[in-house]
Structure formats: structure tokens, C-alpha cells
Amino acid sequence: MKDQLKQAVIDGNGDIVNALTQALLAGGSSAREILDEALLPGMEVVGARMREGDMFIPEVLLSARVMQGALDILKPHLGEGAAAGLGTVVIGTVEGDLHDIGKNLVGMLMQGAGFTVVNLGTGVTAADFVAAAQEHSAQIIGMSALLTTTLPRMAETIAALKDAGLRDSVKVMVGGAPVTQAYADEIGADGYGANAGMAVERAKELVG
């Protein structure tokens, strides 16, 4: 049944994923087993097929959505304080910038890969990033910018994390059309993804 569940995640079939998740729980499987032996392996296949060009992004997002539905079912059974997946990522578009589609795409793919994603939206200030990192005990902060004029806000947020004493415990990722690996290095970010898929892979490396 776990193989069927894994395949249903790959196929993006929410009805079957929900039914099988509940059936496995009822049959005595633990939430952790279902997560580690069916759901996450399913998303691993999805990620690999996306990288190989075998799956289109809307298909990947559908798998991510059904995975999230299964996680909602499992959450009460995972136990107090148990991580549902790979960790928590706080994402947002920096202050002064209202572009959010790329950032949302990253958030959806990260969620599908097993991260808990807190999406702060657009126009997020450095203080808001810091506060959210503290509130959600985030492992990663992901900042997006589409305008060259708002890029400096990324460096300011990194400085604010340092000032708050969080820089050693929170990894910083940056992305957006004008951002390059060189810029990420220059401002001291830990990770950069040229596209949403690469951002997810880098996030996994950072928490791995």
C-alpha cells in the first residue's frame, strides 16, 4: 500500500493519497513510517523527474499539493515537537518589491519537498524577516527581489539577522531575476537558486 501511496503522490491524485494515508494509519503504520517510506520518496521521484525534464511545473505543484494534504492528516499523529519534514523556511519578497510569483513557486516546491513554509508575502522588511525567523524557529530564510533597486534590502536583512544573534542558526537563501551567485556571495548569503527547482535542491543541501 505504501508503494501505491508513493505512486499516487507522483500522479498527483489527492483522493487516493488521502484515502491511502488514512488506511495506512488505521492499519497500524506510524505517521513517521508513512512520511519516510511513501510520501517523501514519492516527492523524491517527482523532484528527480522535474530535473530530468520529465515533469512540468504544474504537475510538480499538484504533487506538492497532495503531499501537503497528506501531511495535514499525519500532523496530529507525528507527536509534539516532531518535525513533519525537512525543516521550516520563511520566505518573502523584500521591502519595496511587490513581485511574488517566483517566490511563491519556490515556496510551493519547498513545501512539496517536505519543508514547512511560512510565506510572508511581498514588501517584507528586515525586521519582519527576523521576527518570523524567531517565531517559527526557521532553519532557512529565503528572500526574493525582482528589482535592482530593492536588492540592497537583502544585505540589510542579513545584517539584521546578525544583529539579532540569529545568523549562525539561520541559513539565508536569495533569488530573483537580477540576483546572481556572485551577488549572493558578495552579501554573504548561504544559498542561491537560479530557478525554483535549484532553490529547493540548495535548501535541502543547507539543512542536510
Partner: peptide
Amino acid sequence: ILDMHSTAM
């Protein structure tokens, strides 16, 4: 268009 493989515009 959004390239549905790379997510690039």
C-alpha cells in the same frame, strides 16, 4: 510564457 520545466520566464 513561463517555461514549465525551468520556471524561467
